[in-house]
Structure formats: C-alpha cells, structure tokens
Amino acid sequence: MMELEALQAVLPQIRDLGASLVAISPQRPTYGRAVRRRAALEFDVLSDEGLKVAKAFGLVFTLPSYLEELYRSFGKTLDKYHGEPAYRLPLPARYVVDRRRQIRGADVNADYTVRPDPEETLAHLRGLLPNAERERPKPTMRM
C-alpha cells in the first residue's frame, strides 16, 4: 500500500514521460477497488487470480505452513482474498517494460519492507527517452 501511494504521487511524472502504470495483485477485483479507494489511486489495480502472470515473471512463492497459520490468526485470510485455497503470494516487484516488451528496469526483493524509490523508476523511464527522440527527430536548432 505504501509503495502504491508513493507511485501515485509520481503518476503525473510517469504520464509526462509517456508511460503508463498498473499494479497487479492476486486479489479478486473487489479488493482492488478497496485498495484504490483507500489509497486514492488513479491507476488500474489488476486482478491476477491464480497468479498466472506473477508466475510468468517468476515471482510466485507458497507461504510456509507456520506463516500461513500466523496470517490466519491475524485474520489475513488469503484464501478468501485470492479465491483459491493455497496461500501463495508474488514477491514484491517493480518493472519498467519498453514498447518492445523488453524489461528495462527491475527490482525484486524477498523482503517486502525493502522497496525502491519511485525516483528510480522515473530514471529508468527517462533512460528510454533518447530512443523515442530518435524515432521522432526534431529539427536542429540553429544559433
């Protein structure tokens, strides 16, 4: 949530750089609505039920039974949120993907309390700009 709020804060800059932003979680869409409301997000929160997309990125792990038990005791019922009995989650990850679908920025961490600053993502996006400029050459300025 804190990471999504931080990304929301730079959403205008992301859009100025010609890019778009989506968040993906294994939760059913109703929880996506809750997240957007609570954090006042203006970007889409996608529902990756069954974690197929997270799996394609290599991010899915199954919680050890002792952690599942703890989460249940806290009322964090992932089976209800995800619509599947297994307690599986994606590793927290942030990607920058260029128009040819090549990954140009990647931050994956096993520790969900360690996340990159949105500024790093903006830097990755700025790094993609020179190519865009080459595709649309501007007239050279004469002094």
Binding site: L7, L21, V22, Y31, V35, P92, Y95, R104
Partner: peptide, 14 residues
C-alpha cells in the same frame, strides 16, 4: 505498450 513504456508494480494485497 502501444502508447509507451509500462511500469508494473506487483504487490501482495490490500
């Protein structure tokens, strides 16, 4: 991606 680069944030949930 048809309109530009894409930032994807994978997160656990609400």
């Amino acid at each position: 991606l048809a309109s530009g680069p894409l930032v994807i944030s994978f997160f656990r949930g609400h």
